[in-house]
Simulated assay, not measured.
Amino acid sequence: MERNRTRLDQLFEFYREDPNDAFTIYAIATEYVKINPEKALEYYQILLKDHPDYVATYYHAGKLYEGLGQKEEAEKIYQQGLVVSRQQGNRHAFSELQQAYNNLMGLDYDDDE
């Protein structure tokens, strides 16, 4: 816990210096996932609103919504992420989001079929 606090303090220092840096906001959200999921959602929401092209947000925000039992919100986030990653030509992110979406929706496909 102490290590997270120190890291968060450092991240907030960066955030104060540049509140528009998407990576810093993402890092803060990621740290909060471990200790305060609701607070993490606040920072993911900032990213989704102010930095919709920051594609890494969609997978992690979707997973967090899933973990909090908010399936419909997770579904929406994954769908948005699929659009953004496709627009960016980011096949890795698209693949991860597609797999997460399929798992959420119960659409697990077996390669042997």
Rank of each mutant, 00 (worst) to 15 (best):
R16W: 00
N102A: 13
Y78V: 01
Y59T: 05
F23Y: 13
K34V: 12
D110G: 04
N90R: 10
A27F: 03
A56H: 13
N102D: 08
L11Q: 09
L68P: 11
L11D: 01
E113S: 11
E17S: 10
R16H: 06
Y65E: 11
I77V: 07
T6Q: 09
K76C: 06
P37R: 03
E17H: 05
Y109H: 09
H92Y: 03
Y59K: 15
H51L: 14
E73V: 00
Q99D: 03
Q70Y: 08
P19Q: 09
S95N: 14
A22H: 12
P37A: 08
T57L: 15
Q98R: 08
A93D: 06
Y109R: 13
Q99Y: 00
E75W: 02
Y78M: 09
L8D: 01
Y26L: 00
I28S: 09
I46N: 07
N4W: 09
Q45I: 12
I77S: 07
Y15S: 05
Q10V: 12
Y59N: 15
V55E: 09
E42K: 15
G89N: 06
D112R: 12
D108R: 15
Y15I: 02
A22N: 11
R86D: 00
E13I: 03
V55Y: 07
N20G: 11
Y101P: 01
L48N: 04
D18L: 03
V33G: 03
E31W: 02
N102Y: 07
E13R: 14
Q79D: 04
Y78A: 04
D21Y: 09
I77H: 05
E96L: 12
I77R: 03
T30G: 10
A40Q: 05
K76S: 06
K39R: 15
D53T: 04
E72L: 08
S85L: 08
D21T: 06
I28L: 15
T6R: 13
A61G: 11
P52V: 08
L48V: 04
E42S: 14
F23M: 10
N4Q: 06
R3L: 09
A61E: 11
A27Y: 00
G62E: 04
V83D: 03
L48M: 06
L107M: 13
V55T: 12
H60R: 15
E72Q: 14
Y44L: 13
D111M: 09
E2G: 02
A29D: 08
Y15W: 12
Y43P: 04
E2N: 05
R3Y: 04
M1V: 01
E42A: 10
F12E: 06
D112F: 15
T57F: 11
L104P: 02
Q87D: 13
N20R: 12
N102W: 02
L68E: 03
V83G: 01
Y78H: 02
V84E: 08
G67S: 00
E96V: 07
D111H: 13
G67A: 01
K63E: 14
R3N: 12
L11T: 11
Y44I: 07
E31N: 13
K39W: 08
E66A: 07
L82Y: 01
A93C: 03
L41K: 08
Q87T: 04
